[in-house]
Design a protein around this nucleic acid. Structure first.
Lengths: 165, 165
DNA sequence: TATTGTTATACTCTATAACTATA
DNA sequence: TATAGTTATAGAGTATAACAATA
């Protein structure tokens, strides 16, 4: 579904030509921010899912595919498919656990470390890009308001709801 | 991909435990707002796409599937699949155009008019729900800041980017 | 020959279930 | 028997291409 289509989905004020509510603006800007980030990391040959996986492994090296499946909320067979390309790309290494030879210990390769640096640079550039219209005071104000809403909506700080359903 | 997964995708500040950037908050709240709206209209037996289609037809009754395809940014065969369930549900009527019998003129049924009322109520409740943490002045402030960003990012007012790619 | 809409086909994403190796 | 991971299969969503009816 493209731009025009989504505009009609979230429209609130039918009396005017354009939807103007805060809910619509949030959905519009949120999708834009997510799309822009996806486009940026696509230049690195990665998908948003790839970045998530790499970060999860970086945060806890040696973790199993099962633990990843649990945290991701997907079935184990899905993790196989998600890790395969990263393995083939030489970014993730599957090492048989010495203690329990049924499971793998997932590790990032040295190459992945270089990629993670690029991802970090990309994330910082992305943040600057998205907020470039605001001065520092406005940016702080925006974050305050957004955090008020996030708390009110019972969103876990730092946890993105994804796009499911 | 679920909550925890997405949190790692957009993380900006690796030195802290949580991502805190405005870009992340926008993506988080935008996805939340879109998900909540989808959940609400699911109670009406509709998908976000259905709502978009109904609104597009309501805004220009008699329009063809081709024009819908163009505005939606999808191929004509996709429109067939999108309209079919709405037709079967008795919400959209395909009338052969008398002038050019190749195309249909799409119209909403009286039943659809009742559904549109429900959608409107839902959208208003949704807006109130999402912004319930803010007082009127804060809500105006938020909209101002979001509109600054939207303009800076060259987003067409009232046009949602969708979740493509 | 060009256009509107449908059908057939294929590709991607994801889940369920059966299977292998290990415990 | 239970667990980690893989493979096989199926269903949803969407695009491409071939087709029928009409122009």
């Amino acid at each position: 579904m493209n731009d025009s289509a989504w505009s009609t989905v979230f429209a609130v004020t039918e009396s005017r030509n354009q939807p103007t509510g805060a809910a619509f603006l949030l959905a519009q800007l949120g999708a834009h921010a997510a799309n822009r980030f996806a486009a940026r990391i696509a230049d690195l040959g990665l998908s948003p899912a790839d970045v998530g996986l790499l970060r999860m492994i970086a945060a806890r090296p040696g973790r199993s595919q099962q633990s990843l499946a649990a945290d991701l909320g997907v079935v184990p067979s899905r993790v196989t498919a998600l890790i395969d390309p990263l393995d083939r790309a030489g970014l993730v290494e599957r090492r048989r656990s010495t203690g329990d030879r049924r499971n793998y210990e997932l590790h990032l390769t040295p190459e992945a470390a270089r990629v993670m640096d690029e991802i970090k640079k990309t994330a910082i550039a992305h943040e600057a890009d998205i907020t470039s219209a605001l001065d520092p005071s406005q940016r702080a104000q925006l974050i305050t308001l957004l955090e008020l809403i996030a708390a009110d909506q019972n969103l876990t700080p730092g946890v993105h709801p994804g796009y499911r359903r």
